[in-house]
Design a protein around this nucleic acid. Structure first.
Length: 731
RNA sequence: GCCACCUUAGCUCAGCGGUAGAGCGAUGCUUUCGUAAAGCAUAGGUCCAGGGUUCAAAUCCCUGAGGUGGCUCCA
């Protein structure tokens, strides 16, 4: 005799387990009509599923016109839309397309499928697929669930010859995969093992299209609303690059065509905010294929934005007791063998710059490519024993040892600044009295990112970190972490960035890949969590996301099309001090290992500016604007006064320009508005007479009226010096 | 790197086998004007590069480069 509790606390009792539809009908016919699924104890189920026991329930409904669809309703619709799309693709492209995995996502859904050699799914198919989907939706076929015993079901799937579905079934049943072979272990099933397999027919089982699926789904295809194929991409089975390559087709669905159209229009709008579009329009940066992929050329206007940010953070660093250093863009290979970066991360580094004489000598010996690499990546016996002694482990294996006269030496374009900073720390003795040592540098690093991964300013091959390394004692760690987070907080609040999430990367529970002792890790993780808590914003603890050398705190923001980018980061490192044999003298007059914090509150200047351009849609606050004020003379007759106004502003340290084109004032206003200049000063004979300026802020607000020039100058200076995020100078 | 798509004037794009087009921008002239585009004129192209098919290629095919969206990766 189950009792179901509704969200408002009302209780409904029945003689026997009831389905969602029956419960909805008991509440009201309107609700039963609108119902597309139900939530039982927080878990989403088919409407036809009967809840066996007492439970908290909630009916999920198709939204009424004008009503916002709930996330649960969208989830159900989109999950079902994925099935409909898969059926449509098999109709349009061929039945030999093998389905693998098709879940809903935040903005829609996708289906991963194996497309046989010789065939492909391209954008040319999209209209046909979307059209077929519309037909299936219009047919309003019931979506029917049925179960088969595990053996029977598996037999059936094997007979169908789709190893991906066999693999899904085996994972659902908690069996080891008989088909998935890879270097990586298959990810564990997200849910508990089931006893039988569930299938969903889009229509009548045995007659219509069917798919192995755990559900849940909407009761019929007519409940999907409007759906559309969005894009096609390649993916890997189980996300494993050594595994099969699959084709991933993305789609999205909404309750109505209007909402779908609105979503598509939003995407178009978002594209206009894209930092690559604005960056070109406002001449902020340039990427030139002759210079190289992923290498940013900062143009004069963009350089101003970056310089202002650097000046801003520089002032904060001085307040916090940092000292600034400069280090070169390259370092000896041996330096990076010491830090462990080379050759461990060689796949994401630019190839080393090797000594010509060593290379010539090896070539003269007729050295093979493999041997050449071995000699570049190898170390001397002495190096090996020193390193292994420091790390107290077989960090460097015997097979990497190369005789001294065969070693090829060279340099590496630096992928990290830390080895250089470690060497600065090591260059003089340190007492516990002068700890912590905080070395800061806008250090430019180079990493070889895969070409498909490059993206405007947000993913590049050369970038400048607002880097610093804090060498501190164990006891100082919590306070230093706190200081690092304060910096990030100051940056985000000054720039009015509120939409970010904080990720605390911790150890995986069962892993031996980490360096450092358990005690020091516990302490560092506690410090990270305490520091994150002090931020006053929600954060997620993510086990397994720590670096191998220590836990970390990352700040992640979304770009205009919803992609996440990591900006600021604070990382604890127990490894570096050991590898570089760093020490300070403690009160006991004995050497101690410092802890190192790597931190970059902006992350990289490139990525941060890219995100910032989108954040402001190019309309920077005055202090960051490349051009802060533009003087617009009404006509040439007012040019002399305009130049006088410009002179006064220039002398006040304001970035000002003057528009002396023969255009009409309307045209000049539009040009300045398009360039997102914070303040326009319209000056004509009237203003000249009174030594005044007529102010207009960024074209957003209309004519603000006239004010004395001196008053405007002091207003702008005040706004800039306090780094105000809004335009506040008004008559 | 993988899959799909894209690459035509400075920018945004049309043309898709038969001699290269538009809007904006630029330049010049006229206008001297009070708050989101004055008028007229002119210049501007190896149609991403290389190869092939064809009487004929921006257009069709192949290879390469660069870009976009995903996948994978991110010390």
């Amino acid at each position: 005799m189950p009792t179901y509790t509704l969200p408002d606390g009302k209780k409904l009792s029945f003689d026997e387990p009831k389905s969602g539809l029956e419960v909805a009908a008991a509440i009201g016919t309107g609700l039963a009509k609108a119902a597309i699924g139900w939530k039982v104890n927080g878990e989403l189920h088919d409407l036809s599923w009967k809840a066996p026991e007492d439970a908290d329930i909630q009916i999920v409904t198709f939204p009424r016109p004008g009503q916002q669809a709930s996330p649960d309703a969208l989830y159900l619709m989109r999950h079902s839309a994925a099935h409909v799309m898969a059926e449509a693709i098999q109709d349009v492209v061929g039945k030999d397309v093998l389905l693998a995995y098709g879940p809903p996502t935040e903005t829609g859904f996708f289906y991963d499928m194996y497309v046989p050699a010789g065939k492909s799914i391209s954008t040319d198919h999209f209209n046909a697929i979307s059209g077929r989907m519309a037909e299936i939706i219009k047919e309003n076929r019931p979506i029917t669930r049925y179960e088969q015993g595990s053996e029977e079901g598996l037999r059936r799937l094997r007979a169908e010859g789709n190893k991906y579905k066999v693999d899904n079934a085996e994972r659902a049943l908690g069996l080891p995969s008989s088909v998935y072979r890879s270097s990586k272990p298959a990810p564990a099933a997200e849910r508990q093992a089931t006893q039988s397999l569930s299938f969903y027919a889009t229509g009548t089982p045995g007659k219509n299209w069917e798919d192995l699926c755990r559900g849940p789904h909407v009761p019929s295809t007519g409940r999907i609303g409007a759906a559309r194929v969005m894009s096609v991409a390649s993916s890997f089975w189980h996300g494993d690059e050594n595994s099969d390559r699959l084709t991933r087709v993305y789609g999205t669905a909404f309750p109505t065509q209007e909402e779908l159209d609105k979503y598509l229009a939003q995407l178009e709008e978002a594209k206009k905010r894209d930092h690559r579009v604005i960056g070109r329009a406002l001449r902020l940066f340039h990427i030139d294929e002759d210079v190289g992929q992923g290498l940013i050329l900062w143009t004069p206007r963009g350089s101003i934005v970056r310089k202002e940010l650097q000046t801003f953070i520089g002032a904060e660093l001085r307040k916090q007791g940092y000292t600034e250093v400069f280090t070169p863009h390259i370092g000896r290979l041996e330096l990076y063998k010491t830090s462990g970066h080379f050759p461990y991360y060689k796949d994401s580094q630019f190839a080393p710059i090797v000594e010509r004489d060593d290379l010539d000598k090896a070539c003269a010996e007729g050295c093979s490519c493999a041997e050449l690499m071995h000699r570049v990546e190898g170390v001397s016996e002495r190096f090996r024993s020193v390193m292994n002694d420091r790390t107290k482990a077989e960090t460097i294996t015997q097979d990497r040892v190369v005789p001294d006269d065969k070693l090829i030496s060279g340099f590496l374009l630096k992928p990290m600044n830390c080895p250089h900073h470690a060497k600065i720390f090591a260059s003089s003795p340190h007492s516990y009295r002068d700890m912590p040592v905080r070395l800061a540098e806008f250090g430019t690093v180079y990493r070889w990112e895969q070409s498909g991964e490059l993206n405007g300013m947000t993913r590049v091959r050369g970038f400048t970190q607002d880097d610093a390394h804090l060498f501190c004692t164990d006891d100082q760690l919590p306070a230093e972490m706190q200081g690092c987070l304060d910096l990030v907080k100051i940056i985000f609040s000054t720039l009015g960035m509120k939409d970010y999430r904080v990720r605390v990367g911790l150890r995986a529970p069962d892993s031996s890949k980490y360096t450092g002792t358990k005690e020091s890790w516990d302490k560092a993780e506690a410090a990270c969590i305490a520091a994150a808590e002090s931020l006053g914003v929600p954060f997620s603890k993510e086990p397994g996301e720590a670096a191998f050398y220590g836990p970390k705190i990352d700040f992640v923001v979304k770009d205009v099309i919803g992609r996440e980018w990591q900006l600021g980061t604070v990382q604890v490192d127990y490894n570096m001090a050991i590898r570089f044999d760093l020490s300070y003298i403690g009160p006991d007059n004995k050497p101690h290992r410092p802890v190192v914090i790597h931190r970059a509150p902006f992350g990289s200047m490139e990525r941060f500016c890219g995100v910032l351009i989108e954040h402001f849609a190019g309309a920077f606050p005055t202090w960051l604007s490349p051009e802060q004020v533009r003087v617009l003379p009404i006509s040439e007759k007012s040019a002399d006064y305009a130049r006088k106004v410009e002179r006064v502003l220039l002398d006040a340290g304001v970035r000002v320009s003057i528009d002396e084109s023969p255009d009409r004032i309307q045209s000049k206003v539009k040009a300045a508005a398009d360039d997102k200049v914070p303040y326009m000063l319209i000056v004509g004979p009237r203003d000249a007479e009174q030594n005044a300026v007529s102010v207009r802020a960024r074209g957003i607000e209309k004519d603000l009226g006239a004010m004395p020039l001196e008053q405007f100058v002091s207003g702008v200076r005040e706004e800039v010096s306090t780094r105000r995020a809004t335009l506040d100078v008004k008559p």
